[in-house]
Design a protein around this nucleic acid. Sequence first.
DNA 1: CTGAAAGCGCTTACAG
DNA 2: CTGAAAGCGCTTACAG
Lengths: 345, 345
Amino acid sequence: MRQHRVTSFDVAALAGVSQSTVSRALAGDPVVSEPTRTRVLAAAAELNYHIDENAARLRTGRTGTLAVVVISREGEDHKDVNPFYFSLLGAICAAASSRGHETLVSFQDAAETLSGRYEEQRKADGLIVIGTTANRTAWNYFREIGENGAHIVYWGSPFDEGLDWIRADNQEGARLATGHLIANGYRRIACITSDHSPQRQFKERYDGHVARMREEGLPTRAVEIDESLPREEQGRKAVSDLIASGEPFDAIFVVCDQIALGVLLELHERGIAVPGQVGVVGFDGIRSGAYAIPPLTSVEPDFQSAGTMLVDKLLKQIAGTPSDERRVPVRLVPRASSKGPGLLP
Amino acid sequence: MRQHRVTSFDVAALAGVSQSTVSRALAGDPVVSEPTRTRVLAAAAELNYHIDENAARLRTGRTGTLAVVVISREGEDHKDVNPFYFSLLGAICAAASSRGHETLVSFQDAAETLSGRYEEQRKADGLIVIGTTANRTAWNYFREIGENGAHIVYWGSPFDEGLDWIRADNQEGARLATGHLIANGYRRIACITSDHSPQRQFKERYDGHVARMREEGLPTRAVEIDESLPREEQGRKAVSDLIASGEPFDAIFVVCDQIALGVLLELHERGIAVPGQVGVVGFDGIRSGAYAIPPLTSVEPDFQSAGTMLVDKLLKQIAGTPSDERRVPVRLVPRASSKGPGLLP
DNA sequence: CTGAAAGCGCTTACAG
DNA sequence: CTGAAAGCGCTTACAG
């Protein structure tokens, strides 16, 4: 841009002080006298001076940067990443920014290109790893990075033991969803979920659902998803399986919105009316649920809290004062898909 | 993590060479002899040594990092950011990574917190700015940053003159969409768009639509969106306006998928059958369109090309060899929403 | 082919 | 309250 980069020495010369005073003044060191600070700031502004963060970081050893890794399925198109993780990513970047940190973002999938040596390379002070549980290789990789001393906080990891993770309050969310269906008059409620999935979140949501059903003395019915399919196809297939089983049902609690979108589509194509014949509730609060037909009732984590909690947990880990906050609060967002049963055939 | 950070001097001592030789060997400098290189690499691996990028960057002046700024509406929830931009973001990060660059990502909306001095602060070598055209303050801010010498490439800017921008091949996409509706038997095709929006893309899509209609000798009909509403509500309102006008129509080309989702919802609630009574085609290729009811036909840019083109254009600008590639190729993705008219009432 | 040395632009003890 | 000086960990002319 310019021939000679403007440095703190140039500012010092213009302000008539030493370079170290410029550094102190700009860092807000209270030891600098007010008139001096004013002169320095004016000179810096005049020269359009900005601190070279590389030099500052080399000196201090801190980068002021957090790495955010979004794990996707190997070979998956970015367009097919669960929008939930994009919302979470946005919230994390915003929270980091509000804490004065930059965010170095990467989408990682293929085993050969996994890269997490951010701290060794002094590119970041710590990592936040989020994304699909399905890519086991990636999670193993980052677990190892963490075991070698890196600072990491997770959302979505299949591993819990000894790791710093944060998740939605899944049990509570599932209870809200189930209670809502019951309150709206549904009784034969099936749950599309996975019991043996590495996705711990699904298991937690299923557990919360079962607990709430038991309180009401209602029988439970689980339909296992086929994890090898794309999420929406999992929903379509689960509905087919549920219908093929011959057991009657008047509502479905689906442990993930993306799967629920497939459920709605399959029910529609089979001419089954939602919410009249079957009520549906999802989980995650993805935006397109609000514009599904009918609009999908869902349980939504507070994304802003999620971002803040992940960032703060990481910063505390880096500072050596670990926190034990783990659960992001959730709320039920009632929409048309669960309005109550009409006349059953 | 460790008391003493492992430096190239430690590697040098272990390998029995000088520090400068370590640097050359790890940089792949061909001047280093093969046996020496092997010894250095072994020592580096043994010590788990990684180059301190801060130090390297301070020395070379290059950061190997690109800043990616996603502009959103002021106060907008990250969950409400158009998923199109998230797909684009993912593609940009992947392309940058394949070119050996990191990506510093930020979501920016509020005027007070706009920040784009990445190059002055030596945090990045250049910027890619994408996002909603609606936040004029933000685009003004980045235009000024660019005028002050920063390297920037844009997608979505309301400004064209003198800027390095990339956009989808909107005219061609609109022609494909319109031709597809015509081929499927629709004739009275309305277009939900904006003629005076700062969104140049909408205008381009409308122009392409009109051109194709004219070729066929068909009359055109534009319904203006109300930009003050959320995208989906714009679609609902436009459908209401269209119907209220009393003019018959059997298809709608909507210049944006998010708006099209609202269109589908409104048509559904009014009991108008899609595609039997009205065919609908959108633009952008957002994922939830595929799971709308009925699944939405759309024009989709090649996201991977989009990411690569943005990154390469920026890298060329930085290198001082500007390119004039501007248009990302598009393709039509036919789905149920435009299958052809049934019997009109 | 390898080494000794300078220097990128800061922050921060240490003196005064 | 301010300044002179060291040093963070690299890369890269310059010598040999």
